[in-house]
């Protein structure tokens, strides 16, 4: 049976924790709003890009002239997984669910006898994946010093990936991130980015388009840019998802702390009352004995 002082201390510590989680929840809510509007502002660009590329790709038949970013290297042996996670923890299952998706994917590929290479964007995913795939991880990209993700960050990552692709280090690249659906729903997603998967929209087929310079040349300049845009979008979605996940995780934690405080206060009051009763009985029985 803990003493009254122990109970008081415990209540005080849970209260302090509750204050922290509450503050974290509010910070996450404010950051979420910013991240969400950034993700929404980036959407038109990515959508336009997709439409234009779809139009271009639908007019091109895959041949030896097709850029390798679209047609692939012709092999399917070496896979690159780009795992985007958060830099910080305390955001529920956010990091672990992305890492789990990547791990399952990697295990499947390894079982098929393929070679797997991993680039981690964000420290948390690296921490999780390092345990199993220490020799597969080729790079860790740290974005901790970045407050608001800009296009430049995505560009740097894209340049690194493109450099490796040009050097023939891998055949297929897949991007792992969490898609932001709502504050309570974030969906871990795997998206193949090299070779690019474009949906032919076929909208413009009736209009006669003029291309300046040639169609193939435009496509060749657009494909690397599309890679950057896809990564940028993934990073923004990830940032919004992270804040959403943290917000709901901290909301839960605050609620749990509240329940715990309630329960412990009850125990505390009960034992205090028992103590008083006990003392009263002692006094009364002492008086009676006289």
């Amino acid at each position: 049976m803990p003493s009254l002082k122990d109970l008081r201390n415990r209540i005080a510590s849970v209260k302090a924790t509750q204050k922290i989680t509450k503050a974290m929840q509010m910070v996450a809510a404010a950051k979420l709003r910013r991240a969400q509007s950034a993700a929404e502002a980036a959407r038109p660009y990515a959508e336009r890009m997709e439409v234009v590329l779809g139009n271009l790709a639908s007019g091109i038949t895959v041949g030896p002239e097709t850029p390798r970013l679209l047609a692939g290297t012709g092999a399917d042996q070496v896979h690159l997984l780009i795992v985007c996670t958060a830099e910080r923890g305390l955001c529920g299952a956010f990091n672990s669910s992305i890492a789990r998706l990547a791990r399952d994917h990697a295990n499947r590929l390894l079982a098929e006898g393929k070679t797997v290479k991993i680039i981690c964007v964000g420290k948390k995913g690296y921490d999780i994946l390092r345990r199993q795939f220490a020799q597969n991880i080729i790079e860790l990209i740290d974005l901790r010093s970045v407050r608001q993700i800009g296009f430049d960050n995505a560009e740097q990552i894209a340049q690194k990936i493109l450099g490796r692709f040009e050097a023939g280090e891998f055949d297929v690249a897949t991007l792992f991130y969490s898609r932001f659906r709502s504050v309570i729903a974030q969906i871990p997603t795997a998206q193949q980015i090299i070779p690019a998967q474009l949906e032919a929209t076929g909208v413009s087929s009736d209009a006669v388009y003029e291309y300046e310079p040639e169609e193939g040349e435009i496509l060749a300049t657009l494909l690397p840019r599309n890679l950057t845009v896809q990564i940028f979008r993934a990073l923004l979605e990830n940032a919004a998802s992270e804040q959403g996940a943290r917000m709901s995780a901290m909301d839960n934690a605050t609620r749990n702390a509240g329940e715990m405080i309630k329960k412990q206060t009850q125990t505390y009051n009960r034992s205090r009352q028992a103590m008083i009763t006990k003392e009263l009985i002692e006094i009364i029985s002492g008086a009676e004995a006289l």
């Binding site: 413009s204 209009a207 388009y209 300046e212 310079p213 435009i218």
Partner: peptide, 19 residues
Amino acid sequence: PASEGDMTVLSGHAPMMTT
């Protein structure tokens, strides 16, 4: 500032794409 020279776009321009 199109890659093959500056150009002006007015309403009713023919469909085209340029870098």
